[in-house]
Amino acid sequence: MQCRFVVIATLVAGALAISGCASQTETPPPVTTHSAEGTPPANTTPAEPAPSATVINEVIDEVGIPWGIDFFDGGDAIISLRDTAELLRISPDGAYTSLGIVPGVAQDTDEGGLLGLALKPGDQDTLFAYMTSAHDNRVVRMSVAGGSISDVTPIVTGIDRAANHNGGQLAFDADGNLFISTGDAANPPLAQDTGSLNGKILRVDQNGEAVDGNPFGNRVYSYGHRNVQGLSFDSQGQLWATEFGQDTTDELNLIEEGDNYGWPVKEGSGDDSAFIDPFASWSPTNTASPSGLEIVDDIAYLGALRGTALFAVPLTGDRAGETYRLLEGDYGRIRSVALAPDGALWITTSNTAGWIDPRPGDDRILRVDVRG
């Protein structure tokens, strides 16, 4: 496999640093197909055949901590690099260009940085990004016209930042409203405070203002969240979210306007009707840690970090049954999951972020066929 030399530019006191990658000397993991084993979900018609994942190609390797993904209409992806704040435009065959560094992204953020991305619906030149600044987490709008970053404008500011629990995902609904996932910034009581932006899913317009009809008269759409890093809509336009638990239970939730998902009062299911139970859950948290989320044919595909797999969960019935674990152990920690215009699923690994020993070629971006 040919090594990709990714230009990684970092703004530090106005200085520009560029680094390359060493030649790969070991053979990368083979292209494989994994069909799921296990019991189909309860109260559903089993998926026929069971979900499977076939790696089509390795798009690029040796790219540092890819996090957010969205797609141009022609099929190229735009991808954020968490720690260096660089945006890359990458084609399915691995050709890429750098769009530059998003200004103002802090360098001392641990799990923060340049996170989720969303291109404006119907406008390929306008990009929204979730980022960690020196003082807060925020959402910015920028132009990427002509292949470079310009006109960066903050539209939502004042989301508390921390070393972890920063949230960071973005998704547009069919009406052009922007949904934003935020973490509790390691301050759990904020999640139950509907006046706080933290521990929430927010719904705003494209200027960052609260959408008319939001349940609390502000930007908050749902609350009681610990750290949501995946958002996706199903075929009925319903919003779903992945959520990291503390020590006990990770969750996949169906998100309803105004609902309370329980954190920090509870993790997973409970007997209190004031809190919404998850559709699917995994215990203990070291078996899952679901991050990125994409829904294809009403099957939720989740990037499982500590589970080192692509989880598949059919979204039928009242509660999910057995989770299908695809590509398990083949590529390490899977972070982002996004559907490309050609129907392929793009997934990213997150093995160079300090939680696992990197493999030769990490981190990598893969194209995966889940439609069969």
Rank of each mutant, 00 (worst) to 15 (best):
V140P: 01
V140Y: 01
R141V: 12
A145N: 09
A145R: 06
A145H: 07
A145Y: 06
A145E: 15
G146Q: 14
G146I: 08
G147E: 13
S148N: 15
S148T: 11
S148E: 07
I149G: 15
S150T: 13
T153V: 12
I155T: 05
T157L: 00
G158V: 00
G158L: 01
I159G: 05
I159V: 06
A163S: 15
N164P: 11
H165R: 14
G167D: 12
Q169A: 14
D175P: 03
G176M: 01
G176P: 01
N177P: 00
N177L: 03
F179M: 04
F179S: 06
I180Q: 04
S181R: 15
S181W: 02
T182M: 09
T182C: 09
D184R: 06
A185L: 02
A186I: 13
N187K: 13
N187Q: 12
P188R: 08
P188C: 15
P189E: 08
Q192C: 12
D193Y: 02
T194V: 12
G195C: 04
G195R: 05
S196W: 01
L197W: 02
N198V: 03
N198R: 10
G199R: 06
G199A: 05
I201C: 10
I201Q: 06
I201G: 06
L202H: 08
R203Y: 05
V204I: 11
V204G: 13
G208V: 00
E209K: 10
E209M: 15
A210K: 04
A210N: 10
A210C: 08
F216M: 13
F216P: 07
N218I: 08
N218L: 04
R219W: 02
V220H: 00
V220T: 15
Y221G: 03
S222H: 01
S222W: 01
Y223P: 12
G224H: 07
G224A: 14
